[in-house]
């Protein structure tokens, strides 16, 4: 049911009934080691290229879930490489229909929303949702060659290697998606590709405000506000913006997946990022720890929609944020 301008309430909640997460070597040294299902030893994992390793990560995770839920037909996903090639190459041997989105790191949010919409229609009993990212493959696509000796500023973020896929169903045990608020493209005038936090925080703020107004709620109605990959910089900006707008929000209420995955001493600068960042955190720590209690949580996936060519031609970083409410 449509509420307000861009929000929806799901009368048939989408339940996360199963999930599988996979991550790389740097993430293994981080905070979520005990909660991630599988690790790869290095960024190649016996493949010849980074892109093939990215494909293998997706293929392995999808195949594991397909073996447990063989009746699933649709996969809502997307990745960061041209036309989602790792995803499409990874699905060549499955019968899954890919529904891929190009919303960068916000893809997981839009995928969850779209999957919930499909279940709402009563068309399917189960659908698969998930995202994956690969540090070296993304670095090659968006920045400089991996071995190039360049000094990154403290505001930059590190793409997470890994991610998670899950099965959403109309019934079953698990956390439920009950509301969604779709984001719009925001241009707040930021143009530094080494500071994604400041560019994405306004989009996150816009979607949050829209949700609060549409659903007549405040941050106090939720236990946590989990953001995707704002990093330490973006999270601090979001907190100040919410306080400035007059919302009573507690600093401990804000959780950023990018900040949670890695330990403080790890060389990731402002935190993790990437399409797989939020899915990895939510489907490992979220499912295995947070949602064991009875919680009502806002989950916002934020993404920057620029490309290296577009940024050189027009120095603008448009951003977007998609929100879902998860209750357990």
């Amino acid at each position: 049911m449509n509420i307000g301008t861009r929000s929806f309430q799901f009368h048939t909640p989408a339940v996360i009934i199963d999930q599988h997460t996979i991550a790389g070597p740097l993430e293994k040294q981080g905070n979520l080691t005990a909660e991630i299902d599988q690790f790869i030893p290095d960024l190649y994992d016996d493949e010849k290229t980074y892109e093939l390793c990215y494909t293998k990560l997706i293929r392995q995770t999808v195949n594991i879930l397909m073996s447990r839920h063989p009746l699933t037909t649709y996969l809502f996903t997307g990745d960061l490489i041209n036309q989602s090639t790792p995803t499409h190459y990874g699905l060549m041997e499955t019968l899954l229909v890919p529904v891929t989105f190009d919303h960068a790191c916000a893809t997981f949010g839009l995928s969850l929303q779209s999957a919930a919409f499909m279940l709402q229609q009563g068309q399917k009993q189960t659908v698969m949702v998930g995202t994956m990212s690969h540090f070296a493959a993304v670095e090659k696509q968006f920045r400089f060659p991996n071995e190039y000796g360049q000094q990154k500023p403290p505001s930059s973020q590190t793409t997470v290697t890994g991610g998670g896929f899950c099965i959403l169903a109309t019934e079953g045990e698990g956390p439920k998606i009950t509301y969604a608020t779709l984001g719009r493209v925001i241009n707040a005038g930021f143009k530094d590709p080494y500071n994604m936090g400041e560019a994405m925080a306004p989009a996150c703020f816009d979607t949050l405000l829209c949700h609060f107004q549409d659903c007549q709620v405040t941050p106090a109605d939720y236990d946590y506000i989990i953001t995707g990959d704002l990093g330490a910089v973006g999270q601090a900006i979001l907190f100040d913006l919410l306080v400035h707008e007059g919302y009573q929000v507690n600093r401990e209420q804000l959780i950023d997946a990018g900040c949670e995955i890695f330990k403080d001493h790890q060389p990731v600068m402002s935190g993790g990022s990437g399409a797989g960042c939020l899915s990895l955190f939510l489907l490992s720590h979220g499912i295995k720890h947070l949602f064991k209690q009875s919680l009502k949580v806002l989950v916002i996936a934020t993404g920057a929609l620029h490309s290296p060519v577009a940024l050189l031609q027009t120095p603008i970083i448009p951003t977007i944020a998609h929100l879902v409410v998860i209750e357990s």
């Binding site: 925001i186 500071n195 900006i237 100040d240 402002s270």
Partner: peptide
């Protein structure tokens, strides 16, 4: 959208490059 507010708040939280240490 209030871009001026965004830039003021962002300015406050931008970690400065450690210029002296870098030099």
């Amino acid at each position: 959208m209030n871009n001026k507010l965004f830039h003021t708040v962002a300015e406050k939280h931008n970690p400065p490059r450690p210029l002296l240490k870098n030099c």
